[in-house]
Design a protein around this nucleic acid. Structure first.
Lengths: 127, 127
DNA sequence: CTGTATCCACTGTGATACTG
DNA sequence: CAGTATCACAGTGGATACAG
């Protein structure tokens, strides 16, 4: 009855799910926004000001995505003009640790990667 | 001479660079391939077999990207038929630690995220 | 101020066929 | 076996205008 001797594989359906999460983390703006929210809640326009280069549209979309995934909470104050605060949920905060670790790695190795790219491109040009 | 009192900000040009690295890590296949290579070198077709669903084209492109960034080494054996081995460089191996950490986080919270999504979608449907 | 609605360009990805 | 070339297509992201 197809009982197989599994090697310690985590490489099947799990990977698919992990990839899905990685896709969120890997999109153009999510991490940048999460980082800004790491230190405390912010208003919509405050995030827009801090995350350099993001369009209003993408900020809205990305925040919706983060909210949907339960990483960010959204608080609306029914004032006029409207005011909306965004904050990291507990889940969102827990994500910070591994993301920061990756960020540290990136920061530590960016130069190495850059030189690797230059070398590769020069080698390619001289094909 | 515009000396400003800097708060401990790492949030300027650094972030751009980090994002660039994150884009590599966040693309659809890079992490999956790096994970496969974590345990040892593999041939092109071996990777293709292990990374379920990847097309030949995307495998080639992703491997080239990883090689360009200095994360993967490429060894060609001038035999016929040709044989090419891919392996993680030292830099590539060092990337494994933070990536695995993120992977562990993803694995640990996938369920939580899934339920959050369902809740959000149900709430949206009932608007 | 905080969004939503359009439109459009670009990029990433997959399918397929071909080559050394 | 290990690619490259070509095409077609969907998704992402930016600009702009508009709305509550």
């Amino acid at each position: 009855m197809d009982v197989t001797i599994d090697k310690p594989r985590v490489e099947h359906a799990d990977c698919r799910k992990v990839s899905q999460v990685l896709a969120r983390v890997g999109d153009k703006w999510s991490v940048l926004i999460v980082m800004q929210l790491a230190e405390g809640e912010l208003r919509f326009s405050e995030i827009k000001r801090r995350v350099n280069g993001i369009s209003q549209r993408m900020l809205t979309l990305t925040l919706r995505g983060l909210e949907r995934d339960g990483l960010v909470t959204r608080t609306i104050y029914p004032t006029v003009p409207p005011r909306v605060d965004y904050a990291l949920s507990e889940l969102g905060h827990s994500l910070c640790r591994p993301v920061m670790a990756l960020g540290q790695w990136a920061l530590a190795h960016v130069d190495q990667i850059d030189t690797a790219r230059e070398r590769f491109d020069r080698a390619s040009a001289a094909r």
